[in-house]
Amino acid sequence: MMRFLVALALLIAAPASASQCIQLAGAPAPKLWRAALAPGEVRIRYIGHAALRIETGQGRAAVTDFYGDAGTGPTPDAVTMNHAHATHWMRNPPAEIPYRLKGWSEGAEPVRHWVQIDDLLIRNVTTDIRAGAGWERDGNSIFIFEYEGLCIGHLGHLHHLPTDGHYAEIGRLDVVLAPVDGGYTMSVPDMITVLKRVRARVVIPMHIFSGYALERFLAGMADTFEIDARPGSEITLSATSMPDYPVIRVLTPERAPWAE
């Protein structure tokens, strides 16, 4: 209930850059695009590990779980980071990156981000992470990228099933970037449970440590998702052109996978 009220408060208090994903939670999901990047389109490129580069038709770019490699292209406008491991964050990101968004809390209150860059909105929803024999409260962030009606969620280093309050804060997701390592974050069955509840039209696996874990994940999702494992490290999407059926798009990382 508390997280639902937080989500409602964030929406009411939000500036002109109100979240379309929260407003439209539960609404019919919109549809894969094919042509060159244009206004309204987003290109997602898999750099490696949990780092993906998100580029918009307006020329803006953000990199998730930034560890120092922003991929090819201009300096990104924003990077998001989680501190579970060194491969998910950088202690001192380059100063030329305007927005360097940490996903963990360093005080009593959860870290909150609501950043508008032209038509790209970046916000976060905090979750807990394991820390030794216990848990670190609000130690991870699910970062959500909204552009022209398209809602993209990067689950970060998600260690537990989200609560109803978390789902209320997240809102609708059209695309999910999901860790499928099978143990460092969540078990394969638990990750499948999360994704089948979110019901995004496109799921992009990341944080992959073995073909075995990936195959288990794909097998568990095959009853409701089409599997697209064509070679390629990127995908271009638009809110006005999404698949009529849910798809798992397995991308090839541009860099060699990191070890945890």
Rank of each mutant, 00 (worst) to 15 (best):
T224P: 00
E226F: 09
R100V: 02
A131W: 05
I142K: 00
M1R: 12
H49W: 11
I170H: 11
D128L: 09
V180P: 00
I22Y: 04
V203N: 04
G26Q: 11
A27R: 14
V176K: 02
L120A: 03
G26T: 12
Q20W: 00
A70D: 10
A213K: 01
P30I: 03
A239S: 11
V188C: 03
A229L: 10
L24P: 00
S233L: 08
G171T: 13
T75M: 15
L10N: 10
H159A: 15
R137S: 14
T127I: 05
P205S: 06
R172C: 07
A131V: 04
P189H: 14
G156S: 10
P76F: 13
N92M: 10
G40H: 08
K102W: 08
M191D: 02
H113L: 07
S141C: 08
G153I: 04
D244L: 06
V6G: 00
R201H: 11
L101T: 03
V79A: 07
F225Q: 00
R197A: 11
R123T: 10
G68E: 06
T224S: 14
V115H: 01
S210V: 06
V202E: 00
L32V: 11
V115I: 14
L150K: 02
P76H: 13
N124H: 05
R130M: 05
A259I: 14
T224A: 13
K31N: 06
A222L: 03
D228Y: 12
W135D: 07
H49T: 09
R249V: 05
S233W: 08
Y184E: 11
E226V: 15
V203H: 01
S210H: 03
L32R: 06
Q58G: 12
P231K: 09
R45Q: 14
E41K: 15
I248M: 07
H154Q: 08
W89P: 02
E215I: 06
T80A: 09
D228V: 12
F225T: 02
I235R: 00
H85D: 15
H113V: 08
L214A: 07
P162T: 05
Y245R: 14
R123I: 06
V176D: 05
S241V: 08
R130G: 07
A27M: 12
P94G: 09
R34H: 13
A13I: 13
P257G: 13
P243V: 06
R34T: 15
Y245Q: 13
E234P: 01
W33R: 00
R197G: 05
M242K: 04
V250E: 00
D190R: 12
A29N: 10
G232Q: 08
E260C: 15
A168V: 14
V6S: 07
R100H: 03
P15S: 12
D119Q: 07
R100S: 01
F217D: 05
S238T: 10
H85A: 15
F66L: 04
P110E: 07
H157W: 14
G71D: 04
I248A: 01
R91Y: 06
A27I: 07
V42R: 03
E260S: 15
V247M: 03
M191T: 09
L251W: 02
M81C: 13
T56A: 02
Q23L: 15
